[in-house]
Design a protein around this nucleic acid. Structure first.
Lengths: 305, 305
DNA sequence: TTGATTATCTACGATTTGTTGATAAATAAC
DNA sequence: GTTATTTATCAACAAATCGTAGATAATCAA
């Protein structure tokens, strides 16, 4: 027996003054309502109602119980309604982790647009390039480039992430434009710390220096810095198009080895589970899924015009 | 599923930080606790906990729910404890209906003694000679002389009630002492309104005047008045021994026709039901059952000395 | 009295419950 | 890195419970 249903039945019987009318109101059979109240009495060890076939009379215990149980039922209902609201319309605090360079360039307008659509959602955006433990650190969603790690997490593919190799026109004029991957040997490669081994594809083997750090090498865990260095003529970078797209379109960088472009990676939204997802999370996933376009707007350098 | 148990399980899981420890504390299998929480989530339509095999993390919804549900559970527990107390030790208001003449003479000391034994019970004693509807009028117990009427009520026999016929010595000296029932024809009978037809037994047929009201007859619905009249030499009365006992013992009345004494009636305690009886009621029934003695103390006139 | 209304009892099929054993995931220990 | 241990959950099954229908008893109105 569900004790809450039993309480509801008792309250209905008292308020309606009859088992049958209570049953009608609750959409239950009179027998069931009678059973519920009897069991409730048995559970409490107290007679709540004196009943004849014609009239009902509360006992003293029943009177006390009635008052308080009504309050309790209201509390429960209010509590559940509140949770229901959270599901019905997105609200609450949405904690997001995102890659630094990506977020700096593309998350600002996106979040602004999302919050216009969902004004009851507060957002806490934390920029991290390490792979955060979303459960442990309390994130609702982590945006990641590359693939997921934990099996208990869901990764939703949001948009492709192309890696393009490029350098400034000045640099290329001075050192020549590479035509084949092996030509990279002769160039200064501005190296990104977290570049995954398989991300470079066919290019990867030409980018390694077998652990040696060649004199004058530049390594950073921040793509922007490397790109700025490239723009300044510092060498060749292999970076996502969402970072270099603008510079390419502005003519400050030039793409090289286009035929050897690695298979695209992707931006994933990683979250904890699929069922009973909080509305704020579901809304954000839906929103971000369509936001960047396909292909994403930052890849516009492909179709110059 | 009992939602209250499910709530309890959820709270235990949160407080213990683990399903298995919660299960241990609640004395349930871990599988069941897991099931409870899952169903609770399903019912609410919200994920409450993010769980890995090693650690649990409350969702925002779970946090809100946890706080409030704990309050609700406390309320319920407190409420049930309070009712439990009412059962464990007698307390509350005990409403008793009792026959007027009996109560005036014998209930005062009885109630006093009862309340010494059960100080938390308040008593409302209403004196009525009519047969009250205990449910309708909200009585817990009605003391009655004679038998019960309603089938839904329980009547517990408390003590025998003897009806004795008596008159003052002066009256008997003047009008003679009746030796046979038929001698009553020649006497003045002081008549009690509610005397049941069968109560007088063999004497009854001699007490009727076939509807006629003989000149100078005295009728009352109060036995005390009739007894006082008899003491004053006004005639013969047929009254319960609990009324006339004192006067007999004091020599102010004399019993007549002892061999023809009607079969004893009884004092009954009538109450509404047998199961889940409120403690105050059960205590009073137990108390009153042994209080008057067997035979009751007012019948002491039988054993002079 | 009769008839209507009402609460409850009984019996039964359908559903749910709680358990056991198995599985998969996450950490600790080595 | 690999293995072992702990832990939550899944699957399946017997046992218990649930909710309904029919019957019964009790009360009140006509």
């Amino acid at each position: 027996m569900d004790r809450i249903d039993a309480m509801r039945a008792f309250v209905a019987v008292v308020n309606e003054g009859s088992f049958s009318r209570a049953a009608e109101r609750l959409d239950l059979s009179p027998q069931l309502v009678s059973k519920y109240v009897s069991r409730l009495e048995q559970h409490l060890g107290v007679r709540l109602l004196n009943r004849t076939t014609r009239r009902l009379h509360l006992t003293e215990a029943g009177m006390r119980y009635h008052q308080r149980v009504q309050q309790v039922l209201n509390d429960i209902e209010e509590m559940e309604d509140q949770l229901g609201d959270m599901q019905a319309q997105a609200r609450g605090l949405l904690r997001i982790s995102a890659p630094v360079s990506f977020a700096i360039r593309h998350m600002g307008p996106a979040l602004q647009a999302f919050q216009v659509a969902h004004p009851a959602v507060a957002i806490d955006l934390q920029l991290n390039d390490r792979k955060v433990d979303i459960l442990e650190e309390g994130f609702d969603i982590a945006l990641r480039i590359g693939h997921l790690q934990s099996s208990s997490l869901i990764a939703k593919r949001i948009t492709p992430v192309r890696l393009v190799m490029c350098a400034s026109p000045e640099y290329l004029a001075k050192h020549g434009t590479p035509r084949q991957p092996e030509d990279l040997r002769e160039h200064r490669y501005l190296r990104y710390t977290y570049m995954e081994q398989d991300a470079g594809g066919a290019l990867y083997r030409w980018l390694r220096w077998e652990g040696r750090n060649p004199p004058g090498e530049l390594i950073s865990n921040n793509g922007d810095v490397l790109v700025e260095a490239a723009v300044a003529g510092g060498g060749i970078v292999l970076q996502p198009s969402f970072i270099v797209g603008d510079a390419i379109q502005a003519g400050r960088l030039e793409v090289v080895l286009t035929e050897f472009e690695p298979a695209p990676m992707a931006l994933y939204a990683v979250y904890a589970h699929r069922q009973l997802l909080a509305s704020k999370v579901r809304s954000f996933l839906d929103f971000i899924n369509g936001y960047f376009g396909d292909p994403p707007y930052w890849d516009a350098f492909d179709q110059p015009g």
